[in-house]
Design a protein around this nucleic acid. Structure first.
Length: 668
RNA sequence: GGGCGAGUAGCUCAAUUGGAUAGAGCACCGGCCUUCUAAGCCGGGGGUUGUGGGUUCGAUCCCCGCCUCGCCCA
């Protein structure tokens, strides 16, 4: 409703400004007033024009209102304050728009690529990875809801130092052979144990092992580490085979972990193929040809291929004679020993994403979801396969610490002349997840006095503060279960577990989404699961209450809305006027804001606005619920309206929750 | 040293990207179950938006200086 009426009013205002003042304004500012008494939409446009028109804003506002006349869907306009124009919706029309028009048909059909999760496949996923995956998955749902065609990618760095470390652990700390590792994998499989958990511990032990012993030993271990990394990058040897086995097994576990949160992927591009298919060599040629990279001939970066960083002051780019000055601050892309940096490989990968590389991965199926297949990169793939890459816009869900390398890749694209692509490259950055001190204690960690006073405890492998994603979900489900069991002693184990899982996962997802991206989340299980406040359970409780009403009323929410559609608009408008109807109208207004909030979320890459919207909807409903008793309402027309209000709230809540990846239980 | 982000109520966070009296949640105090789920609702107190200037009809938001914190690069 809001989106339509907003557009309609903007059109009319544009027309008036053109006809009356010969002014063409591209963006007419339209906002939602702080209070309902100011109407449903307002514009400060008269304030804005006061200067150019050399008139008092109030006069301008009055002239605009007079020229507007009547606009369909609006009950009227008035001038308020210093020169605001407040618009009132026609409530009968508004309600009809909410009932019918809130399911906007998808219109855009561009190809968008979202990359998220991207966990190193060398140990179990932890709580920080959950924020990444939940943010990414939610944004994918939002893009799809808005009509975009989206491919979901999960980039796998299976040849990096992290994988090398765990391989060192298997081969040199534990002294296992390739055969032993194979046997271990079979063994774990049989016992139903998790390889990612096994690696979690082994990785910690290996990190410790590096720093132990005499200085000769630590030196030797360091060399071993890089030799192992090198062998993995090379491929075609036993070390690489161990890495492949382990990283693939851990990757499967990660996909299973994410599936618990209803998170799926379409394609898993791997670092190993980027290396073996020589993506970098192609990119290197393009970078040289476009002059983005140049060979440094002096200074500390002598012999390196470097890329100039953006300068704050452009002066220092050239010497007085016009030659290029020595730029010590340039970003090294190829080191003097001919090895390429991570950023270099990333540039190549992103050329592929935009379809600019001129080479493709091989593809094979890897993981089967109920409704589709997830593919993985390989050197020699199968035919036929779906088409990935070549996107018009990309979003990389990567934490804020990576903003510098991400900026480098964007800069390289721009330097190569792909400005349009660079403009559609979004580093979807987010801050870390930490723990509240009390939750860290609850998890069994020893905290110093100083730590207890902090707002949050940073998760650190070194300090030993880590929470595995699966453990966290298990803990939350257990906690939710005991709450459910308290209230529904008649439910069997299966039903209790199913409802508790929905509550726990919903609580987790909501907690990860309610904060804007660049705020640090101090995670606390009790806060996330709290039935009060801005939490998942509070939202789910609202849906459960509405469902309960319809069970008792003996009709479905859909039927209630159909019945309501038969009521005349005048009747509806009549019931929606007056003081005691304000909370009903507020709820309809809120329900009518969904598509507007969706647009805002996508424009700003900020899913938190929808999380907030859902909360406010639930809050408005709770207020409505306590003021109007639906089932005992004696006036049949009014009862129809009240039921429809509950129905539309349920529809909106469940729709928005599904976009947030949260499923609501029938009862709780 | 350079770059990015942040500083808002006792605490954790918002603020439709320059708009009306800066809003929520938690915590605290008081009230509400014989009626659709009290995992709820209603009411109350609580603010010099780090700081000093600037831009303008109007600044939490934009510009400049300073202070503090976090991260990245060197």
């Amino acid at each position: 409703m809001y989106l339509e009426l907003q557009k309609r009013l903007a059109e009319h205002l544009r027309g008036v400004l053109k006809a009356k003042y010969d002014i063409e304004l591209e963006n007419i500012p339209l906002e939602i007033p702080p209070e309902l008494k100011f109407g449903e939409l307002a514009t400060p446009v008269a304030l804005q024009l006061a200067r150019t028109l050399r008139k008092a804003p109030k006069i301008i506002a009055q002239e605009i209102v007079a020229a507007l006349g009547s606009v369909e869907g609006f009950a009227g306009f008035e001038v308020a304050g210093a020169g605001y124009i407040n618009a009132r919706f026609d409530r009968g029309t508004g309600v009809r728009l909410v009932v019918h028009a809130e399911g906007r048909p998808p219109s855009v059909q561009d190809h968008v690529l979202v990359e998220h999760t991207s966990i190193n496949p060398n140990k179990a996923a932890h709580i920080g990875h959950l924020r990444n995956a939940i943010l990414g998955d939610t944004f994918v749902r939002l893009l799809r809801a808005a009509g975009h065609k989206v491919d979901v990618q999960n980039y796998i760095d299976n040849t990096g130092v992290q994988v090398a470390d765990v391989v060192v652990g298997f081969l040199h700390v534990e002294g296992k052979s390739l055969g032993d590792v194979k046997a271990l994998l079979r063994d774990l499989e049989q016992r139903g144990e998790r390889i990612d958990y096994y690696c979690w511990d082994l990785y910690a032990r290996t990190s410790k092992w590096y720093s132990e012993g005499t200085s000769e030993e630590t030196e030797a271990r360091k060399r071993l580490r890089y030799a192992t990394l090198h062998e993995i990058e090379q491929g075609g040897n036993e070390t690489a085979e161990v890495a492949e086995l382990i990283s693939t097994a851990v990757l499967r576990r990660h996909l299973e972990t994410m599936l618990r949160l209803d998170i799926e992927y379409d394609f898993l591009p791997r670092e190993s193929e980027i290396l073996h298919l020589k993506f970098w060599e192609l990119a290197f040629e393009q970078l040289k040809q476009t002059g983005v990279l140049y060979l440094e001939t002096e200074g500390k970066n002598k012999g390196c291929w470097v890329m100039t960083r953006p300068k704050s002051s452009a002066e220092q780019d050239q010497n007085e004679d016009g030659t290029k000055a020595l730029d010590e601050d340039a970003k090294v892309i190829v080191r003097s020993n001919d090895t390429v940096t991570y950023v270099g490989k990333d540039i190549a990968y992103h050329l592929w994403k935009f379809g600019l590389l001129g080479r493709d991965f091989g593809y094979k199926p890897f993981f089967t979801y109920p409704n589709h297949e997830c593919w993985i990169s390989t050197q020699h793939g199968v035919e036929p396969h779906p088409q990935f890459g070549g996107a018009q816009a990309i979003y990389n869900v990567i934490d804020a610490r990576q903003s510098d390398p991400q900026a480098n890749v964007i800069q390289a694209l721009r330097g190569m002349g792909h400005t349009d692509k660079a403009d559609h490259y979004t580093h979807f950055s987010y801050e870390m997840v930490a723990l509240t001190p009390s939750y860290a204690v609850q998890l069994g960690y020893q905290l110093s006095e100083e730590d207890r006073a902090k707002p949050y405890i940073e998760i650190s492998g070194r300090k030993g503060f880590g929470v595995k994603a699966d453990d966290l979900m298990d803990l939350m489900i257990t906690a939710a279960k005991s709450e459910v069991a308290k209230r529904h002693s008649d439910w069997d184990e299966e039903q209790t577990h199913a409802v508790a899982s929905k509550i726990a996962i919903g609580a987790l997802r909501y907690y990860m989404l309610r904060f804007t991206r660049n705020s640090v989340i101090a995670f606390d299980q009790d806060m996330a699961l709290s039935p009060e406040g801005e939490t998942g359970p509070y939202l789910l409780y609202a849906t459960a209450r509405i469902r309960s009403i319809f069970r008792k009323a003996g009709i479905t929410a859909v039927a209630a809305l159909e019945q309501f559609a038969n009521l005349g608009p005048e009747v509806v408008a009549n019931y929606l006027s007056g003081e005691d109807a304000e909370d009903i109208w507020t709820l309809w207004l809120r329900a009518g804001r969904r598509s507007m909030v969706l647009d805002q979320c996508i424009a700003t890459s900020e899913p938190a606005y929808l999380a907030k919207h859902a909360f406010q909807l639930a809050q408005d409903f709770s207020n409505f619920y306590h003021h109007h008793h639906i089932l005992t309402e004696e006036d049949p027309a009014r009862k129809t309206l009240l039921l429809a209000t509950a129905a539309v709230t349920l529809r909106e809540l469940t729709t928005v929750l599904s976009w947030l990846g949260i499923e609501s239980p029938e009862a709780m």
